[in-house]
């Protein structure tokens, strides 16, 4: 496993504010790494520092073992390419022409493309699955399509390392899944090394080879997603965001006020969704609770502490009754 990017005792931030310090990072060739962290933890600062747009407060960022700030901008553009959230408005450029701008660090003074350049552009477009977009004007593409084309452009730079900042933001779920799938394929089949910062916790856990977790206050954890789940780093990092991570099912839940408690008895999907319905209206589910809901395939029975039973035929009815009970008890 060869290391593409690394840092030792890296401190990032601004002259009057250190965002994180003593970061020892390592990016391995052919891996997809996702950088996660709550808003304001300094993800963007870290990303900017790693792609030499910002100088570190201390320590070095090494790209192929060379301090990134000593590499000339043209040479750096051949080693590292970046996809940003900046809205790209290029007027009448076609997607193909946009991707061809990725050859910028390689072409001569007038930007003329050789047959070899065209071959690399074609491969980049094929690798991101953007063939059917190639002839279209970039300004007519949807956000998701445009991100794909920008990724192809980044690939056309033939970088050792691809850094993507929040590229899945503002996209709908199918588009996000598609982009992640593309990135995985690029890493695993084409040997690209990819660092992606994202807010998409769920998708990152499922797709990344490795996660970098940056907590507010600068604490940093890295490892396989599953390791971070098991050692509790994950739950801890997002607790302050009001997001509760449930390690049992890998779901994120909005951490609202829990008001009321109920027990659920039963098995399978009906029991699972009963639990979710109760949690949705703010109940916590606990075995010892005074109110018990017994779940049967198409029937719900509510037992209150006095032993009275009420039967319902939909979760909607159960939820409404539980709400009423809570109101009365106040």
């Amino acid at each position: 496993m060869s290391t593409i990017l690394s840092s030792q005792s890296l401190s990032i931030g601004y002259p009057n504010k250190t965002v994180a310090s003593s970061l020892n990072l390592r990016l391995t060739k052919g891996r997809l790494v996702c950088l996660l962290g709550p808003n304001g933890a300094g993800k963007s600062t870290l990303m900017r520092t790693l792609c030499a747009m910002q100088t570190p407060l201390a320590g070095q960022v090494l790209l192929n073992g060379v301090d990134i700030h000593t590499i000339s901008s043209r040479e750096l553009a051949r080693l590292l390419s970046v996809v940003l959230t900046d809205r790209v408005q290029v007027g009448l450029l076609s997607a193909y022409e946009l991707v061809s701008l990725g050859r910028y660090p390689y072409t001569g003074w007038n930007g003329r493309l050789s047959a070899e350049d065209h071959r690399i552009i074609r491969e980049s477009i094929e690798a991101t699955g953007a063939q059917d977009l190639a002839a279209r004007p970039v300004d007519e593409l949807s956000d998701g399509e445009r991100q794909k084309v920008l990724m192809a452009r980044a690939l056309a730079q033939q970088p050792q390392l691809l850094i993507l900042d929040e590229v899945t933001a503002f996209l709908d779920l199918p588009r996000r899944v598609d982009i992640m799938r593309t990135l995985r394929r690029l890493a695993h089949d084409h040997g690209a090394t990819i660092l992606l910062s994202t807010h998409d916790l769920d998708l990152a856990i499922r797709s990344a080879d490795e996660l970098w977790l940056l907590e507010k206050g600068g604490a940093f954890h890295c490892g396989a997603p599953e390791d971070l789940v098991l050692n509790g780093s994950f739950a801890q990092a997002f607790l302050s965001e009001g997001i509760e991570f449930n390690p049992a099912d890998g779901h994120f839940e909005l951490h609202g006020e829990r008001d009321g408690v109920a027990a659920v008895e039963g098995e399978g999907l009906p029991a699972l969704w009963t639990r979710r319905a109760l949690e949705r209206i703010g109940f916590s589910v606990h075995r010892e609770a005074s109110h018990r809901i017994v779940v049967e395939p198409d029937r719900w029975t509510l037992e209150d502490p006095s032993g009275t039973k009420q039967t319902f035929n939909s979760l909607h009815a159960v939820v409404e009754t539980m709400r009423d009970l809570r109101e009365e008890s106040k």
């Binding site: 000339s72 043209r74 040479e75 553009a77 701008l101």
Partner: peptide, 24 residues
């Protein structure tokens, strides 16, 4: 102006992208 066509094309992408392409 003819010598500037390549940088101008990079600038179409915006300043930050142009910078990551190696344009001063």
């Amino acid at each position: 102006a003819v010598l500037l066509v390549k940088p101008l094309n990079a600038l179409l992408l915006g300043e930050r992208y142009a910078q990551t392409l190696g344009l001063p």
